[in-house]
Write a protein that binds this DNA or RNA. Structure first.
Lengths: 363, 363
DNA sequence: CAGACTCCCGGAAACGTTTACAGCTATCGG
DNA sequence: CCGATAGCTGTAAACGTTTCCGGGAGTCTG
């Protein structure tokens, strides 16, 4: 009796040993019954009873150590306050749930160390896989991604040849869609409110805007370009600065949060939207439809990207030997009240300020 | 040699055994070096080298099984799309990070089974503790909360005597603040757009509205009360229904998402805010300040509640024998442009529709 | 009625880590 | 020069679970 294993841990919580002892069977039998595989009726009864009496609840950590899986998948994004990530998350969640797993989200808050720390911690087996959408990518970061012990899928641009599953869009082209639309509506003094240039999306959108202007032979006026943060407050402030020194007849914003800030700044400055200034956001989140007037916005297919990323991840979890793959989702433009009705209206349209329809016209 | 432990698991990933063998030391020494405790200079060198060569990365699951902690804390909320939870999350994150842990968020989507499933899964040791903010509470739920293997703190109303740490606010009183303010501004036909009555907050706010009306001797007009969902689209639809049958001069909304929907519906119907209809939201999220005009809103102290909940949780993790505690955060009212300037303006105010200040006057 | 087959059970190994313990060597004080 | 002490080291147990394997009992078949 002396060297017998301690049945009740100091912690007081029952283990499978506790219920096995109480039921008078071996831990193997207890485990089998608790997992619903085999066992004679009598054994089943005894084990179930014992488990109920002591309030047994299995230790998932121990189970995972044995089974080498946790049933959890993580998503790491910059900022959950941005509705675009919420939409992405919902799409991912749907796919992940269908595989019987649960999704956990972590907001990195753009603290890059935080993100790598998370990678190192979570990826070390706490989760079966991970989806990351970094807006800044360092080398340190990249190696952490590549030799993660657990499958990782990246949403967003990444160094060309990184050996990681990757779902991206073409936000340069997205900006071009917006500019084309505004030019076609007769706008010429098109302003651009961007996010930080040292982020991957910020840089891409800047390049896209300049290229589009050039393609339309519009001379570039740096006064019409302003940079802030990918946030509402910064977008509003940036727009105020821009309006103080220039007089745009249209504004392209690098995301919807910025666009909402711009709308606020415009209205506060007494400009009418879209009569005086046409406004186009980006990401096409619910936020764009919540505004009055509703905002035109370039969809970068966040939900679609999330969906694809989740599927890539599940496939890689199922077969880790798969070669790294890359998928691309094309942008599209949803035209709504904030940038006026398309010039030759194909169908009878009411006045733009009354009951704008929930559905944008997709270009 | 026959019964020697397998050094390279089928998986191919190196374990502490791999590096120990490669360094020519015992696993104990290897583990010590890797954890930075002790070891002769020579041993340290050899182990470090071996670890680097094979690309060793420790298995966090195994470590947790041994140490009985994971360094993770989870937050489970209804809907991350609602900015109120984002604010709460940020506050929680700050506290949790200061304890060296990381925060994971799960959106239950209101699927009650999902929430209990999450509780049972995560709480079974995957995380060191958990904060839950349920909007519907069933018995099943409650028992899952009470006998969770891991500390749990609930944010929101809960059955009076549940033995769980709990942080709440008084949203009945919050609604009263809104009504008082509107009545004081001379409004009499006050409408109310609420969320589902079978949710805890929905029921509380309904009771609060009725009580406040009664206190002001305003006869209750059921036509002025409408119920939808705690979402933008539902709020807009509910407001449209309400406007179709009644003519309010003010509207109280059960949260900011609903309030934004209401604003959209009002503007689309040609009503001026606040001239024709004064509007007050609830939760005082960033969304309220993003609108034009900015929305008055009843703050339920979400950030503060999150902060308190996180501290309660950390304390309970440190000492699980603590008796269950309950804390209460009082509501307050932020008055902004959507409900007009307070009648006797204490300081010179510009016209309400120009550049509304970012700061509301707190009642 | 013997052999084959099925079903159930318990012992023990395994997942990968940390750590208590004991043994060893080298150093130091007297 | 000897005993105490400090610092390293390796063996083995532990965390709580699942699962392989061999043995025993019962049933079916020829």
């Amino acid at each position: 009796m002396g060297r017998k294993r301690l049945q009740e841990p100091a912690d007081g919580r029952p283990t499978v040993h506790t219920v096995a002892a109480r039921a008078g069977v071996s831990i193997a039998s207890a485990s089998r019954v608790l997992n619903g595989i085999g066992g004679s009726p009598e054994t089943i009864r005894k084990v179930r009873a014992a488990a109920a009496e002591v309030g047994y609840v299995p230790n998932a950590i121990a189970r995972s150590l044995q089974s080498q899986r946790t049933g959890l998948v993580a998503l790491a994004v910059e900022d959950i306050g941005n509705p675009v990530y919420v939409e992405m998350m919902r799409a991912i969640e749907a796919v992940v749930a269908s595989s019987g797993r649960q999704l956990l989200v972590h907001a990195t808050g753009g603290r890059i160390d935080n993100e790598t720390a998370l990678l190192r911690r979570l990826a070390n087996r706490y989760v079966d896989g991970m989806i990351v959408s970094p807006i800044r990518v360092t080398d340190d970061h990249l190696t952490a991604l590549v030799d993660s012990p657990v499958p990782v899928v990246v949403v967003g641009q990444l160094g060309a040849d990184a050996a990681v599953d990757n779902v991206r869009t073409d936000s340069r082209h997205g900006v071009a869609l917006a500019v084309d639309h505004l030019v076609a509506s007769g706008r010429r003094r098109i302003g651009f409110v961007n996010g930080p240039l040292d982020t991957v999306p910020g840089a891409a959108r800047d390049a896209g805007f300049r290229a589009a202007q050039a393609r339309h032979d519009i001379p570039l006026d740096e006064d019409l370009i302003e940079v802030g943060d990918f946030q509402y407050v910064a977008g509003r402030a940036a727009t105020e600065r821009l309006l103080a020194r220039a007089d745009p007849d249209a504004l392209v914003c690098a995301n919807d949060l910025i666009a909402v800030g711009a709308l606020h700044a415009l209205l506060a400055a007494g400009r009418q939207v879209p009569q005086d200034v046409a406004l186009v956001g980006m990401d096409d989140t619910e936020l764009a439809r919540m505004m009055f007037p509703q905002l035109s916005s370039v969809s970068l297919g966040s939900a679609e990207r999330g969906h694809r990323a989740a599927e890539l991840l599940l496939q890689r979890i199922a077969d880790p030997t798969l070669p790294p793959r890359r998928e691309q989702v094309p942008p599209s433009l949803a035209i709504r009240a904030s940038s006026g009705t398309p010039l030759p209206a194909p169908r009878p349209a009411g006045p733009p300020t009354t009951h704008p329809s929930s559905e944008g016209v997709t270009a």
